[in-house]
Design a protein around this nucleic acid. Structure first.
Lengths: 211, 211
DNA sequence: TTGTCACTAAGGGTTTTCCCTTAGCGTAAT
DNA sequence: ATTACGCTAAGGGAAAACCCTTAGTGACAA
């Protein structure tokens, strides 16, 4: 019997997942939470083998939650769940200790396979994720250049809100010219050619959300 | 007993919905489909009371599917399901004959209420949708101006792909100046101030998707 | 028939973005 | 200590976006 916990702030999706996996033989849904905080608060007495963890959540996100979980319960396996292949956080998630990675658009059989695999000590990654990883591994020197600095992320979010360089400079008490530099670096690092593409990129990489 | 069909191309979400609603007393999930085409093709022999219909789908979308459904089976009630409050298609959906409208982030109890209400001849709209409708009704003269023309939608999609006015003009065999006009009209009609905001608006209003 | 509106196009102007360069400062790693 | 890098800032220039006006066409409706 595999004891499973689900952490996801999308209510209907989570409830659906509970039922989909709950009807599988050998799967036992121990509990489900809509935030990392709630989960960590109540994890202690539970008997858990595998956690299905959404990456993007209010409060503690999946990465932070996974790191803290591994500190107190290093034996619990984590499978990251995300919406997009492009999500750049998956490397951080693996770094935090995740053993698997599936997309939300995956079917239930893929998810079942992931849970079984990871529970028995293996790894499981959706095909799309593996392709992405292979591609990044091949071009790793390019990859290294692409990590965004905190300042760049800050500027990125304001750009996506529709602020001009001048407005952003006033918001952050910087020169407009500095913002222009950040803008250029953002386009270069993300490999996008203008703001329209940058906004889409930011969404797919979970730097902003539509909520 | 209320006979329910679910039409949604998001596999895990749909499977989850089937199980969540399937365990409710008096609810009977007749079938579920991942596209409007599939649904219409197989609707004929089925005994159906209520259809939960995603708006944004590959192939036939929720609106088109609802219109065709109403032509052949006018008594079947439709509840539209969507991701965002901003989704401007909800008016078209109501026009197509939908009796209810819920957000995907709604909980299962809200969904259950919607199904029950609509089945017994009533309407059900999420609170957020009602607010939006009330607001639009108040400002209806503004509203009328905001319907996008086919050409504008076409240009909008290309803008969101990151094409410049010049590139779009080449794609559509038009003058760059014409595209600039469409651009201005898009910003004015959607009440957004630049491309960053326009892209977000297009996503929330289901003109483009991240898929 | 008159009016409205989508679509087309152009002129002309301001602002913003985009892209390049150079450069000083501070911090952290080797 | 030298290197590397993030952050800051500026100059300069090309391109694109943004915003206004005017205007002709065709289609569709009152």
């Amino acid at each position: 019997m595999i004891n499973i916990v689900i952490v996801d702030d999308h209510e209907l999706f989570r409830e659906g997942l509970v039922l989909v996996l709950g009807q599988v033989d050998n799967f036992n849904i121990v509990a489900d939470y809509n935030s990392g905080d709630e989960f960590l608060k109540q994890i202690d007495p539970l008997e858990v083998d595998v956690v299905l963890m959404d990456i993007k959540m209010e409060g503690l996100n999946g990465i932070e939650t996974t790191i803290k979980l591994k500190e107190i319960k290093p034996d619990i396996k984590v499978i990251a769940v995300t919406m997009f292949v492009e999500d750049s956080y998956y490397l951080q998630m693996i770094n935090a200790g995740a053993h698997g990675f599936v997309l939300k658009k995956a079917g239930k059989y893929e998810l079942m396979q992931a849970v079984t695999e990871v529970n028995s000590g293996g790894n499981f990654f959706s095909q799309e994720i593996l392709k992405k990883m292979a591609f990044k591994a091949i071009n790793k020197e390019v990859e290294k250049e692409k990590a965004l600095s905190p300042r760049e992320v800050e500027v990125l979010k304001l750009i996506c809100k529709g602020l001009s360089s001048k407005e952003i400079s006033e918001e952050l008490f910087l020169s407009p010219k500095t913002i222009e530099v950040h803008r250029s670096n953002l386009l270069r690092k993300t490999d996008q050619k203008n703001i329209a593409q940058l906004v889409i990129w930011a969404l797919k990489n979970n730097h902003i959300s539509l909520g």
